[in-house]
C-alpha cells in the first residue's frame, strides 16, 4: 500500500466513523424523546458525570484563571497597564479558555468513562441482554448519557467561569495590586452579549459531542477486555480532536 492509498484509507475510515456517530445521534433523537423519558436515568447519569466532576472542574478553572491573569499581568506590567487586566482576561476566559479547557479535560474524562462502561457491557453481552429483554439499548444507555453530558458540561462551564474569575481576581490583587472590585467591574464591562451566548452554546455542543463519541465508541468495542482499553484510548484522542475542531468552527460562527 503506497502513501496515497494509506491516506485514502485513513480518510475513508474517518468518514465511516463520523457516519457511525451521526447514525447513533439520529437513532437517539428518534427513540430518546419517546415516553417514558427516562428522567431517573438522566438524573442518575447527571450525578455520575456532572456532580462527580465538580471538584476537578473547579480546580482546573481556578488555575486557568490564575495562570492567564499571571501571564497577562506580566505582559501588561511593562506598559503600566495592569489595571486593564480584568478587560483582557475576561475575553480570553469566558468565551474560549474555560469552555474548551473544561471540554478537553472533564469532557474527555466523561467520554472515556462512557466508553469503558459501555464497552465492558458490550464485551459481557449486557447490551445484547437489554435488547433481548425487549428494551432499546439506545434509549436505555445512550439517551441518558448524551442528555446528562449535554446538560452538565454547560453547567460546569458556567460555574467554571465564576471560579476562573475568582482565580484571576486573586492573582490580580495579590501579585499586581489591582483591587478585586475594580478587577470585577472591568471583567464584566468587557464582556459583550455574544460572549455570554458563546460560552453555554459551546458547552452544549461539546457536551453532546462528548456523549455521542463516548457512547459510539463503547457500542463499537470489539471482542475482549483488551478491546475495551483500546476503545477508551481512542475515545480520548477522538474526543479531544473533535472538540478542538468544533471549537474552531464555533469561533468562526460567533466572532
Amino acid at each position: 500500500m503506497n502513501g496515497i492509498e494509506r491516506f485514502g484509507a485513513l480518510v475513508l475510515s474517518g468518514l465511516e466513523w463520523l457516519g457511525g456517530v451521526a447514525r447513533l445521534v439520529l437513532r437517539v433523537l428518534r427513540v430518546g424523546p419517546r415516553r417514558p423519558f427516562g428522567f431517573d436515568d438522566i438524573l442518575h447519569q447527571t450525578v455520575e458525570l456532572g456532580v462527580r466532576s465538580l471538584p476537578i472542574a473547579m480546580l482546573i478553572t481556578l488555575f486557568i484563571g490564575m495562570i492567564l491573569t499571571w501571564q497577562f499581568g506580566w505582559g501588561l506590567e511593562d506598559f503600566g497597564a495592569t489595571m486593564a487586566l480584568g478587560n483582557v482576561v475576561s475575553v480570553g476566559l469566558v468565551p474560549e479558555l474555560v469552555p474548551s479547557m473544561l471540554a478537553i479535560t472533564v469532557g474527555v474524562k466523561m467520554a472515556a468513562g462512557m466508553t469503558a462502561e459501555l464497552g465492558s457491557m458490550k464485551v459481557t453481552e449486557q447490551i445484547d441482554a437489554i435488547a433481548a429483554l425487549g428494551a432499546d439499548p439506545y434509549k436505555k444507555l445512550v439517551w441518558p448519557r448524551v442528555c446528562a453530558s449535554t446538560l452538565s458540561l454547560p453547567l460546569l462551564i458556567a460555574l467554571g467561569n465564576l471560579i476562573a474569575m475568582l482565580g484571576g481576581m486573586l492573582i490580580a490583587e495579590w501579585k499586581f495590586g489591582v483591587p478585586a472590585g475594580y478587577f470585577y467591574e472591568t471583567y464584566i464591562d468587557e464582556l459583550e452579549p455574544l460572549n455570554y451566548i458563546a460560552s453555554p452554546v459551546k458547552g452544549v455542543t461539546f457536551g453532546a459531542l462528548v456523549g455521542a463519541i463516548g457512547c459510539y465508541q463503547g457500542f463499537n468495542t470489539k471482542i475482549g477486555t483488551e478491546a475495551v482499553g483500546a476503545a477508551t484510548t481512542d475515545t480520548v484522542a477522538a474526543t479531544a480532536i473533535i472538540i478542538i475542531i468544533a471549537d474552531f468552527y464555533l469561533n468562526t460562527l460567533f466572532f
Partner: peptide, 18 residues
C-alpha cells in the same frame, strides 16, 4: 419487542446487569 417478550435468552456468561 413482542418476539423478545415471548422468547427469552439466557446468555453464556449470564449477562447480568452489574
Amino acid at each position: 419487542r413482542q418476539v423478545r417478550r415471548k422468547v427469552a435468552y439466557v446468555f453464556q456468561g449470564g449477562a447480568l446487569f452489574d
